[in-house]
Design a protein around this nucleic acid. Structure first.
Lengths: 117, 117
DNA sequence: GGCGTGGTCAACCACTTGGTTGAAGAAGGT
DNA sequence: ACCTTCTTCAACCAAGTGGTTGACCACGCC
């Protein structure tokens, strides 16, 4: 899965990973700290962090033997831009449809099916 | 994967599915129409639509033997709300960090490591 | 040097996923 | 009633995913 957008969406499709992001929004943390609340192994959390890192959502910097994890919030823009683009487009289409309906004479040929029996 | 947010993120983690959403933003379409541009079978596209439907991103209404697919843009809000929440939080934290740095005397103890050899 | 701590790498397992082919439903046209 | 068209269901397959356990690496501390 090469494209960045897919990686970001995919990374956030997991509840544990979203929770990790939520906690990193408060402040940086180490892998062990992050792993504590969940009842999975530290290795599993490390894997989750790798996914988040590959998506560009997170960065790890070396500091003694600790590897504090830091949230990189800029990548969110990638998603919001994509989402907003199509939401706006869909809304505009909706608005245009409303215009068309408003400019209609009154009622076209209503098939009997259209009314619930 | 029960929770709605995971389903939406997961649904949009696939480029084909995102492309389908993009095309549906322009206007409703049938499964065959949607499948045409891709070199996969119609069944595969039907599966993709099922994923999008389960995520609440899309709805199908019966119209003769056609099943026109319609984009439901409201679900986007679920994501944008989640994203904005943590992005804002992270940005605020950043701002606070700036304040702290600005209010600092001058320079703390700079370890030799910090300068690139 | 040796040891404990924090973190990752590797191999494995069950389950999901995106794709295929083939058959079957559902609705219209004739 | 029959055929055609649009769509979905079912079974299968290769590849990916989230999890495990066990070994390993990189530090700082005695």
């Amino acid at each position: 899965m090469a494209d960045p957008l897919s990686r970001v969406f995919s990374a956030l499709a997991d509840p544990t990973r979203r929770d990790i992001v939520a906690r990193l929004a408060v402040g940086d943390a180490t892998v062990n700290e992050l792993a504590a609340p969940y009842d999975v192994t530290v290795q599993a959390v490390s894997k989750h962090l790798k996914v988040l890192e590959d998506a560009g959502l997170v960065s790890r910097s070396r500091e003694a033997q600790r590897r504090p994890v830091h949230l990189e919030a800029e990548v969110f823009d990638l998603m919001t831009k994509w989402i907003e683009r199509y939401r706006r487009q869909a809304e505009e289409r909706y608005r245009r449809l409303d215009d068309v309906l408003r400019s209609m004479p009154d009622a076209g040929p209503q098939p009997a099916k259209a009314t619930q029996p």
